[in-house]
Amino acid sequence: MAHDHADPDRLGQLHHVECYVSELEAAVDFWGWWLTELGYKPKDEWDGGRSWSNGPTYLVLVEADGDTEAFDRRAPGLNHLAFHADTRDRVDHLTECVRSRDDSQLLYEEQHPYAGGYYALYCEGPEGVKLEAIAPESDS
């Protein structure tokens, strides 16, 4: 019996994201850390790719073939991925980790953590993709 990958009860919710990267192992080091901090679990691993899932949503990294152009989030196309965080403490922890890592950078330092008008971390990962972790209005 074939597995039905679609869930009609999740109309409009994100199913998965697939990112092509220039160096898989470097990308896995960053994305594995980022996604684990946000509740994702390793899903699949194969030659040239990895994935992590959080419930029915998953993110895939695939090593790109041959020469690749650098990602430019300011060009037409994807600008950033935003993730829910469970607490402000989680956002603060992620911020400190980003500051200490060599493969990412904090964005909008002078406005952090309210660069978007709400409590969040904005950073850039090793391939230049902007990521956001958004805290709830208050930690209950």
Rank of each mutant, 00 (worst) to 15 (best):
M1I: 01
H3I: 00
D4L: 02
D9W: 07
R10E: 04
R10G: 01
G12Y: 06
G12I: 01
Q13P: 01
Q13G: 00
L14I: 05
H16M: 07
H16I: 05
Y20R: 03
V21G: 06
E23M: 05
A27H: 10
V28R: 07
D29E: 13
F30V: 03
G32R: 02
G32P: 11
W33Q: 14
L35Y: 15
T36I: 13
L38M: 11
D47R: 03
G49N: 07
S53L: 11
N54W: 09
P56Y: 13
T57R: 03
L59P: 01
L61Q: 12
A64K: 02
G66F: 11
D67H: 08
T68P: 04
T68Q: 09
E69D: 13
D72V: 05
D72E: 13
R73L: 12
R74T: 06
R74E: 11
A75S: 13
N79P: 00
N79M: 02
F83Y: 14
H84M: 03
H84R: 00
A85V: 08
A85K: 06
R88S: 05
D92K: 11
D92V: 07
H93A: 04
L94K: 05
T95D: 10
T95I: 06
E96F: 04
C97G: 08
V98T: 13
V98Y: 12
R99Q: 01
R99F: 04
L106A: 09
L106D: 14
L107E: 07
E109C: 03
Q111N: 15
Q111D: 15
G116V: 04
A120V: 09
A120N: 08
Y122W: 15
C123A: 15
G125A: 10
E127A: 05
E127C: 06
L131D: 14
E132G: 03
E132P: 02
P136R: 06
E137T: 04
S138N: 14
S138Y: 15
D139F: 11
S140L: 15
S140C: 14
